[in-house]
C-alpha cells in the first residue's frame, strides 16, 4: 500500500513537472506534412543572454546567441543561432560580405554544464552565411552608419547520451567552433536551463 502511494506521488510529481514545462513551452513550428505524415516540431528561440545586458552591446566581436530544439523523423537536434552586428561609416564592398560566418559540417559545439563538464556536439551540416547591410537612415538631424549583420542557424544532432547530459543540469557557456574562428557565449543566469527546457519541450510534445 505504502509503495503504491509513493509511486502515485512520484508519478503525479512527474506529471506536474511535465505540465509546468509544457505550459512554458512555446513552439514556432508544430506541423505534420500532409503527404509524408512526418511531424516537425521547433521550439521558440530563447536568448542566452539578458536582453538588458550583453545582447544590447552586441557588436561583430561579441556574438549574441539563441537556442531552440528541433524534432523531425525521430531525431532531436539542438539549434544554435549566432548573431553578429557591426557598424561602418562607409559602405562595405560586396566581397567583404560573403561568408561572414562559416561553420563546416562536423564542427563542434562545446556546452559547459553547471558542474563544469563539457558536452560536445557536432554540426549536422555546413552553415555558410553572408552579411546583410542596412544603409544609413536619411533625414533631418539623423546621423547613422551602415549596419552590417550576419545570422547563422546551426543544427547539432543529439543522441540519447547527449540528451541525458544536457537535461541533467543547466548550461553556463557555449562555444561554437567555426571555420577559422570561434564564438563564445556566456549564458545569463536566468537562461541556464534554456537548453534543458527546449529539449524537454520537444520530449513532452511527442
Amino acid at each position: 500500500m505504502k509503495k503504491s502511494v509513493l509511486g502515485l506521488v512520484i508519478l503525479s510529481a512527474l506529471f506536474t513537472t511535465s505540465a509546468v514545462h509544457a505550459a512554458k513551452c512555446r513552439f514556432q513550428h508544430d506541423s505534420t506534412d500532409k503527404f509524408t505524415k512526418v511531424r516537425t516540431l521547433w521550439t521558440r528561440w530563447d536568448p542566452m543572454e539578458s536582453f538588458f545586458g550583453d545582447l544590447g552591446d552586441t557588436s561583430m566581436d561579441t556574438p549574441a546567441g539563441f537556442v531552440s530544439a528541433w524534432y523531425e523523423t525521430d531525431e532531436i537536434s539542438l539549434r544554435v543561432k549566432i548573431e553578429l552586428k557591426g557598424f561602418s561609416d562607409l559602405e562595405p564592398p560586396f566581397y567583404e560580405l560573403e561568408d561572414r560566418i562559416v561553420v563546416p559540417e562536423g564542427a563542434r559545439l562545446l556546452v559547459m554544464m553547471a558542474d563544469e563538464t563539457i558536452v560536445t556536439l557536432y554540426s549536422a551540416r555546413e552553415e555558410r552565411v553572408n552579411s546583410a547591410v542596412t544603409p544609413p537612415e536619411t533625414g533631418m538631424n539623423i546621423t547613422s552608419s551602415f549596419e552590417i549583420e550576419a545570422e547563422a542557424d546551426i543544427r547539432y544532432a543529439l543522441d540519447s547520451e547527449a540528451i541525458a547530459a544536457l537535461t541533467r543540469q543547466g548550461a553556463t557557456n557555449i562555444r561554437v567552433e567555426a571555420a577559422d574562428t570561434q564564438y563564445d557565449v556566456a549564458i545569463h543566469k536566468k537562461s541556464f536551463a534554456d537548453i534543458t527546457k527546449a529539449i524537454e519541450c520537444i520530449q513532452a510534445a511527442l
Binding site: L90, P92, P93, Y95, E96, D180
Partner: peptide, 11 residues
C-alpha cells in the same frame, strides 16, 4: 598564420 585580404575603402 592565415590568408588575409585588406579591408579597403575609398572616400
Amino acid at each position: 598564420m592565415k590568408d588575409v585580404r585588406g579591408t579597403t575603402r575609398a572616400i
